[in-house]
Design a protein around this nucleic acid. Structure first.
Length: 347
DNA sequence: TAGCCGTGGAC
DNA sequence: TGTCCAAGGCT
């Protein structure tokens, strides 16, 4: 068994690199725009390339430079992020943009340590942006790298205990030349060849240097500690429609679940059955279909109550929004589902 | 440090 | 249907 060669992987990347909107082709004279690299890396945290595509296009169209993003209203940015999930990313994105546009004069820090000081940038993203945007040698470890390293080195320790061992293996392989391309090459390998299920070992550039393939354990790596079961929580959401079509929405608190996002008013979500808490007096009708939605750590069953209210109605909290905006894309997915269920009950 | 924090697609 | 998974960070 010989060592996997960074050079072999770079040769493979030169031929098979995915063309992505935030990426410049390998060997290109151009450098990737640090703003684009950073924006894509934040969006790609725990999120698929396919899901990110339209959002990256929207953000770069609305805000072509980091200074444009920094000048945007909070509500605009949260609305543009709606549907992508993990909304703390959007809150931190805006904070970081304002630091870069202000204290840094519009230029991103060009070192791993400098990048790591920005909100929303942790060890992975700092290394990735330093390597990809500034061609710094940085040890980039994401889920792809963990999987590739666990297989190439046949590391059978379960995650997350295996992280130090995996980081050491990754550090040993990271080259001084083209570290940015190398980082993207490992991630492309993980995304297209060394996939979680049914890895295509037969066409892998590292097939002859992979200890996991030799032992036959590669498809079952990395091992992972078992996860906890998700409890079921319940709640009630209220859809109040004014006679002019406007819908009652509220901005959620700035932290926690769906923090800073628009939503329908309603009860807390808990395992115990909720006490009704209508936001105003109306002839509430229960929507025939219950909304089901799964979050990272619980399942939600949401009862939707819908009611018509006259013009001039004043809510206890929140505000009426034109239906064009509310029905549009400003809501997190769970509330899009609830909106649809509530509107069906009113028609 | 382990729990919190979304979503949609694959199987 | 349910579970797993994807370019993680924060507290």
């Amino acid at each position: 068994m010989r060592d996997p060669s960074p050079r072999t992987l770079l040769d493979w990347y030169d031929r098979h690199a995915r063309a992505l909107p935030w990426r410049v082709p390998p060997g290109s004279a151009r450098r990737a725009d640090p703003y684009h690299v950073w924006l894509s890396e934040i969006m790609l945290q725990q999120t698929t390339v396919a899901a990110v595509g339209p959002y990256f296009a929207k953000f770069t169209r609305l805000w072509p430079m980091v200074a444009d993003l920094a000048a945007a209203e909070d509500a605009e940015v949260m609305s543009a992020w709606a549907g992508l999930g993990y909304y703390a990313r959007a809150r931190n994105l805006l904070k970081a943009a304002r630091v870069v546009a202000g204290a840094h004069g519009g230029r991103f820090p060009d070192t791993e340590a400098g990048l790591a000081e920005l909100p929303g940038i942790g060890p992975y993203t700092a290394a990735a942006v330093a390597a990809i945007a500034f061609d710094r040698r940085a040890v980039v470890v994401d889920g792809n790298v963990e999987r590739v390293m666990a297989r190439v080195r046949d590391i059978r320790t379960p995650l997350p205990a295996a992280k130090p061992e995996i980081k050491a293996a990754a550090a040993k392989l990271t080259p001084d030349v083209r570290p940015g391309d190398y980082a993207q090459a490992v991630m492309d390998l993980g995304a297209t060849i060394c996939t979680p299920r049914n890895p295509a070992c037969g066409i892998c550039p590292w097939r002859d240097a992979c200890a996991g393939r030799l032992s036959g354990s590669a498809p079952d790596l990395p091992r992972k500690a078992p996860k906890q079961a998700r409890p079921v929580r319940q709640g009630i959401a209220y859809l109040a429609r004014r006679s002019d079509g406007a819908l009652l929405l509220e901005t959620r608190p700035g932290r926690g679940l769906l923090g800073g996002m628009l939503g329908l008013p309603g009860t807390e979500w808990a395992e115990a059955a909720p006490e009704p808490a209508p936001p105003l007096d109306a002839d509430w009708r229960r929507a025939p279909v219950e909304v089901r939605h799964t979050f990272t750590h619980f399942h939600l069953r949401l009862t939707v109550m819908a009611g018509e209210v006259p013009a001039g109605t004043a809510p206890k909290s929140g505000a009426f929004h034109p239906a064009s905006h509310a029905a549009g894309d400003a809501l997190p997915t769970v509330f899009r589902k609830a909106l649809k269920a509530g509107l069906a009950a009113l028609d």
